[in-house]
């Protein structure tokens, strides 16, 4: 009897100890979560915190643009080089690489837009009423239209993804590389895409706005990240404008080259669809 009572007590003690351990563990996890999430929330809620997120996501997007342009310029070296590069991007990391990049870009883009829209709303509310007679002393034109240049570039981006990435137009989607018919003819698609003057015009307008956005954005990034000092302020401004103009020239060179006929699809026929190339090969055999 005594033994049973004792063992019962032990069981109870063990049970209580266990629940205490478990509740302690839950409390520890809660504390860890709070200590992790609290700084993130207060960082987001602070004016400088959101600006730093804008600067970092913007920097990531600028690095992407540099890489994107370097790849695009392969269009001038011919069909093989650009299609090889496109194939490499899609096969990199067993096809996962391109998706890792896309997710990274999407996260950066969403952060950049969410933070800037939140900041712009705060800014408008902070000013309250406007001056009856308004004047500016130094602000550049680009800096005054950042939210609009950004949102128009976003609209272009949606179009651009439907146009060249998702390829909603079957004429562009079904193009096959004549040398390797199993792969898509990116080179032919780019040229065919830009042969439409409206597409080229929208592209050039959007890229011009992007250049305006970056001419203020890149220099601002240096300031927000605390890299702009008395010594580096001129350099940060020059880097911003130079990089914006270089990207603009590089990107618009392609539609301009297509429109002026400098870049033409050769006789091997960019309009060949995958099916027609395969049919032709079967006929040969």
């Amino acid at each position: 009897m005594e033994i049973r009572e004792k063992s019962g007590n032990y069981c109870l003690k063990f049970y209580l100890h266990g629940t205490r351990l478990a509740s302690g563990f839950v409390r520890n996890i809660k504390q860890a979560m709070v200590s992790l999430i609290q700084p993130v929330i207060s960082f987001w809620n602070s004016s400088i915190g959101k600006k730093i997120l804008v600067a970092l996501s913007g920097a990531f997007l600028v690095f992407f643009l540099i890489g994107h342009l370097a790849g695009n310029l392969l269009v001038f070296t011919g069909r093989g080089a650009l299609n090889d590069y496109a194939q490499f991007l899609h096969e990199m990391g067993h096809g996962k690489g391109v998706w890792i990049f896309r997710i990274g870009l999407l996260v950066a883009l969403v952060l950049h837009i969410a933070a800037t829209v939140a900041l712009t709303r705060q800014n408008r509310s902070a000013k309250g009423s406007q001056y009856a007679h308004n004047a500016t002393m130094r602000a550049s034109r680009s800096s005054k239209i950042m939210i609009w240049s950004g949102l128009i570039v976003l609209a272009f981006l949606v179009f651009h993804i439907f146009h060249f990435t998702i390829r909603v137009n079957p004429e562009l989607a079904d193009m096959a590389d004549p040398a390797q018919p199993e792969r898509h003819d990116v080179w032919g698609m780019v040229i065919k895409g830009f042969e439409n003057p409206l597409v080229s015009l929208f592209y050039i307008v959007a890229l011009t706005l992007l250049c305006s956005h970056l001419s203020h954005g890149i220099a601002s990034m240096f300031q927000t990240l605390g890299l702009r000092t008395g010594k580096t302020k001129d350099a940060s401004k020059i880097i911003g404008i130079a990089l914006a103009v270089a990207l603009w020239l590089g990107f618009i060179s392609i539609p301009v080259a297509v429109m002026t006929g400098l870049l033409k699809a050769d006789s091997s026929g960019y309009s060949d669809t995958k099916a027609s190339v395969i049919e032709a090969q079967i006929a040969k055999q």
Partner: peptide, 22 residues
């Protein structure tokens, strides 16, 4: 100081430097 600045309802810097000019 930054938290008080935010709490007072001041806006966020967009690096146009009008402040420096005036």
């Amino acid at each position: 100081m930054v938290r008080q600045m935010d709490a007072e309802g001041f806006g966020n810097c967009t690096n146009q430097y009008e402040c420096e000019a005036v």
